[in-house]
């Protein structure tokens, strides 16, 4: 039967293959509890249906990679998880997203509050240019008007978690945009972490970075995966293999396959998944 699930791994130790594909068998060790679940999630851009009913379960403290060809809806899916899809005019969302068992699309839910619980890191680093490094880390709390106690400690902790502290501890007053691309991206991660999010969403976080900065961020994702439920959108299969426990393959707005990363990449069950990972399209 399957070996126990490791919560953290390094690159050299690929995740063990689990033949039963996320379906818990009676003899399997207890799987981590569910953190986020979508039920029949559909999303539109104008008249185009970008997501066609996606139901996906995300487990606590695991890194899930979302892969698929361009335009398959993977970014839209991510943006539905913190209600960011709807800020674009002409868009629409249907279905449920349960965060800790409660639908974030429930009537009367303040999207701002949801977004405060779900951190997000974008494709291109986007630190606030008018704020200092310190100000960037504290931006979420300050702009939410939450009282910030022990700000210094919070800044240091968030920057340490983002593996940026040693590089910037003497430059905290500098503008966030004075950093290099990779550092900016880690600053954005620190900014998200400062809110102590329950879930961390990353939308192709390395696609605008050079290989060395990419390696830094990937290592960081693996570390963060130990304590945060993390969802990473990527178009890079190697990256999915390096950083994630589970992988979901999207195609034309539908979830085709969801399995442990290693299983999905080596023994795909669906023809489309296999076509994609063997490079027949995408």
């Amino acid at each position: 039967m399957s070996p126990p699930l490791a919560l953290s791994r390094s690159v050299s130790q690929p995740p063990p293959r689990q033949p039963d594909r996320l379906t818990p068998s009676p003899t399997a060790p207890p799987r981590p509890p569910e953190k986020l679940r979508t039920l029949g999630l559909r999303a539109w851009h104008g008249k185009t249906e970008v997501l066609k009913g996606v139901s996906l379960q995300l487990l606590e403290r695991r890194v899930t990679a979302i892969i698929g060809p361009s335009g398959c809806g993977k970014s839209t899916f991510l943006r539905c998880l913190n209600r960011l899809h709807e800020v674009v005019p002409g868009t629409r969302v249907e279905g449920k997203v349960l965060l800790g068992g409660v639908d974030i699309y429930e009537r009367g839910t303040d999207p701002a509050r949801v977004r405060g619980r779900v951190g997000m890191v974008f494709q291109k680093p986007n630190p606030f240019p008018t704020l200092s490094i310190r100000g960037n880390v504290l931006a979420g709390l300050r702009l939410q008007r939450s009282s910030v106690r022990d700000a210094d400690e919070l800044v240091e902790r968030s920057l340490r978690q983002a593996a940026l502290w040693h590089e910037v501890k003497d430059l905290l007053g500098r503008s966030g945009s004075s950093l290099s691309g990779g550092q900016q991206q880690r600053l954005c991660i620190a900014r998200a972490l400062a809110l102590r999010p329950e879930v961390l969403l990353m939308d192709e976080p390395c696609s605008a970075l050079d290989p060395i900065a990419t390696a830094h961020i990937e290592e960081l994702i693996r570390e963060l995966g130990e304590s945060y439920t993390t969802v990473v959108v990527t178009h890079n299969l190697q990256q999915a293999a390096r950083v994630s426990h589970d992988t979901a393959f999207f195609y034309l707005g539908e979830l085709i396959e969801h399995a442990e990363t290693d299983a999905l990449l080596t023994k795909p069950r669906h023809q489309k998944t296999e076509d994609y990972i063997t490079g027949r399209f995408g």
């Binding site: 539109w44 104008g46 008249k47 249906e49 800020v87 005019p89 868009t91």
Partner: peptide
């Protein structure tokens, strides 16, 4: 789906 011809405000 929403008619795009409808006024597209940022109100969702």
């Amino acid at each position: 789906p929403l008619e795009p011809s409808k006024p597209m405000t940022r109100l969702v």
